[in-house]
Design a protein around this nucleic acid. Structure first.
Lengths: 211, 211
DNA sequence: TAGATTGTTAATCGATTAACAATC
DNA sequence: TAGATTGTTAATCGATTAACAATC
């Protein structure tokens, strides 16, 4: 496998390609960069360049073998490792996440759902028992948790991130509307509804101004 | 106001600045680009350049007036317009979104929560009655809906997007794990948990490989 | 004035894409 | 072979940032 350095823009497109290949695999065995690009909303040259970082070998005049390509992308993304995830926060959002079948579909395992509210601890959500926040460190260590998902109110997010980082979690997905401060070596990705809404709002008002 | 062309990278950072200024406003009346950068996780030169697109006038040797700056960012993002939002899908995610206070906090109004499941129609979620999907067009027109939020299963997302676009909605926020095909002039932003997880996974496996 | 900080330039860096030789 | 499509180059484009004159 040629890993080398894969640009971050490419990395963030790989999941999109994977999803599109999922659709394509129902009806074809191979696909061209042009087909994949049009489904993924990208440029075909970009698709070819992105895939070239994976050490793929498409066939000139034919295209890419869909199954082989899916395997290569899965491997590049580390999806075959089966990283364990802990979800912190069992409110509306945490429950929605617990019910989300995308975790297992893409090879992740939800190792625990955690909350600090005594009213919620012990409840069943999506077949999982809500466990107490105080057990976080033990759960992370024993269940080899690699990824922490923060689905708490904004006010608690930083404290949760601190505990996750201290427990050894190096990857955090933050749904709380806060910018987290974390030690070097910890990667945070933010999923933020209001940021996205505000970007849409910008374009609406710009278009309105343009007439 | 100097609008000109604001680069998209700048637009996507404005909501982050706004949130950081929200925090800062509790304790200060002005702030420097350096302070704002460190909170927002950016470079101070970048902050100054971003803000310069808004026609801001910071004061040399002093910094930016926080209240004035918030107003300028809000205006640039069109948050003062109060765009109306319709949420399609009243499942776990749609319910979580309905309960989210960020809509009103940032000037958006949730005009309706819609589902096509007879079991859900008529239910109350976060004080709102779930309305039938068949009413979509009427709701969009009468309540002047500008933004559609898709919180349905992936299988229905494209059909919902088609109906939203046909009803005149020009901005769509898509939580379903699909790449939507929409007519020109319709802007889609995707919020995708599994894409974010996969990007984290990439970095984990790369770090593991690096030792 | 001296210190601080902006606004902007210019250099750098990285990402996108048109184009095309290679080749199935 | 003729047609199709890759892999890669090189040009372009856009974003980031160090540096510093301007100036509060």
């Amino acid at each position: 496998m040629v890993r080398g350095h894969i640009p971050s823009a490419t990395v963030s497109r790989l999941p999109v390609y994977l999803r599109c290949l999922d659709d394509l695999s129902a009806t074809a065995a191979t696909c061209s960069s042009e087909e994949l690009a049009s489904l993924a909303g990208a440029n075909s040259a970009q698709v070819r360049k992105d895939l070239s970082y994976l050490g793929t070998h498409g066939v000139r005049g034919v295209g890419y073998n869909i199954e082989e390509l899916r395997g290569q992308i899965r491997q590049a993304l580390g999806l075959d490792t089966g990283y364990a995830v802990v979800i912190v926060g069992a409110g509306n959002l945490g429950s929605a996440l617990s019910n989300y079948d995308g975790f297992s579909k893409w090879g992740f395992e939800v190792a625990a759902l955690i909350d600090n509210d005594p009213e919620k601890i012990g409840n069943r959500v999506a077949g999982r028992v809500v466990e107490p926040f105080s057990e976080l460190e033990g759960i992370v260590t024993e269940r080899r948790v690699s990824i922490g998902v923060i689905a708490t109110p904004a006010a608690h997010a930083q404290a949760v991130a601190d505990r996750l980082a201290a427990a050894g979690v190096r990857s955090i997905l933050n749904f709380a509307p806060t910018v987290l401060q974390v030690p070097a070596g910890v990667e945070v990705r933010r999923v933020d509804l209001s940021t996205e809404l505000q970007i849409l709002s910008f374009h609406l008002s710009r278009d309105a101004a343009a007439g």
